[in-house]
Structure formats: C-alpha cells, structure tokens
Design a protein around this nucleic acid. Sequence first.
DNA 1: TTAGGGTTAG
Length: 533
Amino acid sequence: MLACLPIGRFIRLGDVAVKSTNLLWRCAFVRNFVAYADHMFDELPQRDLSSLNSQLSCYLRTGNPNGTLALFLEMYRGSSDLSSHTFTPVLGACALLSYPETGRQVHALMIKEGAETGTISKTALINMYSKQGHLVDSVTVFESVEEKDVVSWNALLSGFLRNGKGKEALGVFSAMYRERVEISEFTLSSVVKTCASLKILQQGKQVHSMVLVTGRDLVVLGTAMISFYSSVGLISEAMKVYVSLNVHTDEVMLNSLISGCIRNRDYKEAFLLMSRQRPNVRVLISSLAGCSDNSDLWIGKQIHCVALRNDFVSDSKLCNGLMDMYGKSGQIVQASTLFESIPSKSVVSWTSMIDAYAVNGDGVKALEIFREMCEEGSGVLPNSVTFLVVLSACAHAGLVEEGKECFSMMKEKYLLVPGTEHYVCFIDILSKAGDIEEIWRLVERMLESNNMNIPCAIWVAVLSACSLNMDVTRGEYVARRLMEEESGPENASIYVLVSNFYAAIGKWDLVEELRGKLKHKGLVKAAGHSSFI
DNA sequence: TTAGGGTTAG
C-alpha cells in the first residue's frame, strides 16, 4: 500500500484549496480553515515542538479539530521539525472532519519524516482510515504493525464495527482470542455494540458474562449492555441491568434506557424515567428516532411538546429528528414547516426533507427540494445518503430520466462513489423502465472493473429485473451465479428469490428442486459450540 | 500521542 501513497504528489496543505479538484475538500477548506490560520498562534507563550504538540491535541480534545489542522498548517509552513506526537492529533482531526485526501497526505508526510513507525502512530492511522471508510487501508496498516497491542487490535475491531462489518468485527474478536491478546474493557464495549448491531442474542449474553467477570468500567459497559438488550427487544433485561448497577445519576445510562423504552414501546416507563432528570436534547433526539421507526405520531407529538416546554426547538439536530418523525408518520405539512424553520440547514435536514416527500409518494417534490439543495446558495453538498434517498424517490415515482441524471451527477459532479445500495436502486429504476439492456451494460462494466466480483445484493436486483422483464437467458445465468455463490441456510431468501424466478418462467421442476434443498438445509443444525472460540 | 457507553437522514 505504501507504494501507492501520493508522496510524489504531496502538495502543501495551504495550496490544496487552489489545486485540488475535489469539490468537497475545497468547500470544507475555505469555510473552516481561513478564519483559524490568521489569528490563533501569536498568543502562544512557548513555541517549542513539545508545547505545540500539546496544543494540537488540546484543540482536538476540546472539540476543535479545525484548530488542530490550522496549527499543523502553521507548523508545517514555519518549521520542518515534526514528530510522531505532531501527527497523531492531526490524524484524529482529519478523521473527524472527513478530509480524505488530507489524511492520505498527512500519512505521506509521516513516511517522509520517518514518523510512521511504532504501534501508537500506526494505531492512529488505523483509526483515521477506518473513520473515513477506507477499511482496506486501515487493515493494511494494521497488518504492518510489528508489535500489535490490545489498542491496535481494538482499533481494528471498532473500525469494522463502524463500517457496518459486524461479522468481520466478531472475526477480529476471535482472532484476538487465538492470538492470546489480553482483552480490555474497550474490546468488550465494541463487541457488545457489534452484537447489538447484528442483533445476536446468544453472543451478546456471552459477552455480558464476560463483562460481569471482568468487573471493570461497569457504568460504561452496563450502558452498552442496556443498549444491546434494548436493540434485541429485551427491554426487561435492559431494566434489570440498570437496576442491578444501582447507578441512577449517570445521564448517559439513563438516556440509553429511556430511548430503549421508547424503541420498545414501553412509553409509561420511558416517561417515568424521563421525570427523574431534567430533559436533555440527546434523549429527546434518540426517543424521536424510536418514534420514527415505530411511526408513532402520538408519542412523537408528546416529545415535541417536551422540547417546546424546555426551549429545545432551536437545536437543529432536534428539529431534524422532529422533521423525520413527522415525515415518517405521514405529516408532510408539519415536516415542511419545521424544515423551513431551521436557520442553518445541514445535509441531514435537506436529506430528511427529501426523504419525507419520497416516502409520502411525492417524488416530484422530493426532486424539487433536491435541486434546491444543489443550488450554490444552500451552503451544503449532497452526500451518498442524499443520493440514495433521491434515487429511491425516482424508483418509487418511476422517474427514469431524472434517476439516470442523478446517478451520473453523483459520480461526475460530486465525485461520490456509488455503493451497492445505489446500484441496487438504480437497477430498480432501469428495471421499471424495461431497460434491461442498460442494466446488462452496467453489469458488464462492473464485471470488468471489479475483477468479476459483484456483491450479492446487486445480483439479486439484476435477477428481479430479469424476472420483471422476462429475460430468461440472462436470468438463468444470474440465478446460477447466485446459487454458486450462496450456499448457507442463512441465505434462504436467495433460494426463495431464485425459486420465484424459475416459477415466473415456468420451470417448475427447478422450483421443486430448490424447495427441497431449502427444506434440507433448514433441517441441518449446527453443532453446539462457543460462538467466539 | 492510540481504542469504549446515550443524538438526527439510507
């Protein structure tokens, strides 16, 4: 990987705003940096390397990553004296601000300065890459760590978790056992969260036992356990954890339990718990998310009232939550009124509003808001979630040309790489328009560029398209590929899909064969064993 | 100087 890094292309940070063609970077740079660079450093009493490094991490710790980057820029301009202690907070700031190119450039500079070696520096790189979604780079750095410690392992584990790779995160946990790494409370915390994201009850209970055995950081780990039990629908178990810990003053823990109660529709308990502390913005936002998921307008309105009484409605994140709740409950007028009331609309505000129109069946209005967002005056740029929402709106409303336009705009104007979900959505748009030829051209391009490796979800979308458009030959090809690649009983939905395709084209013998196989697989039970070891 | 618990959009 190191050979691929842009050392030769390293540009002074100060010049990047002019030279980079990356639109996102350019906007972020102009908006955030210039104000800092001019004012902040003359007042520093000492300017030796050690005090400057402390200042860098101080900015980061106090929630001012722009300050970290601005000071680094100043140091880079004024001195060639940089140490590994300089780079770790800078990498943290890059990760926080989502400056992908800057992170790579800092990595390149670390190599140039000889500051890239050592477990701590490399762990900071593992985190930076994983926080920016570059898991492959993160893993490559991890593999290059000569003396891996529990922190570098934990960084790898939480990196997988952060990027939605729960199974891989559990794989890291197993590897830690194999390698006899002494796990820490940080490891357990990430594993609990992984179990929650995968909604795997048995493994989560196993980790709960480990938590009880270690007996460390029970407030933090207890909160993670409360979230876990809430997410698998066992709010009574979450409550037991809360009661057993006998810690009733920790706001984070109480917030977790309250939003868990809302998510599990235990409203009486939620409001009882809420009365134990002064309401705070965070608990209302997470409770609203629960209402959105449950489409529970009545409770959402109650929370809106609590927010009004406590003067929280000036908080734009809370407004986003309210807007989403109203949108998902079909109250488009209320959602729109809230949207208009937000003075500085973020990409989340815009995306929520677009989605509200989309899920209420008004694809045309969703596109109108999207276009408004893309105008220069809006001050925000659409991201990959925005495009997913817009493509989904086009798919549902049958807006084929608009969908095509958005898909190419995403790649060409906003330099965003479409993910699997975007392709699935786009294939759906083309399928509904009957354009199976265009779908196939897309598949062929993906086969060429991805070295024959296309995610299963995309093949599923293509097979649905073949089914809908009665393309028997290509459908059979896709069905064969899917059956070759997918073999576990956990993929029963693939069997059903392929079987439905054969039914649609009248090949009943194959339908029967598949149903037999599915039945057989369903009867095969795995031998009992520990889930992790 | 590195990792963990409760917030908003898919």
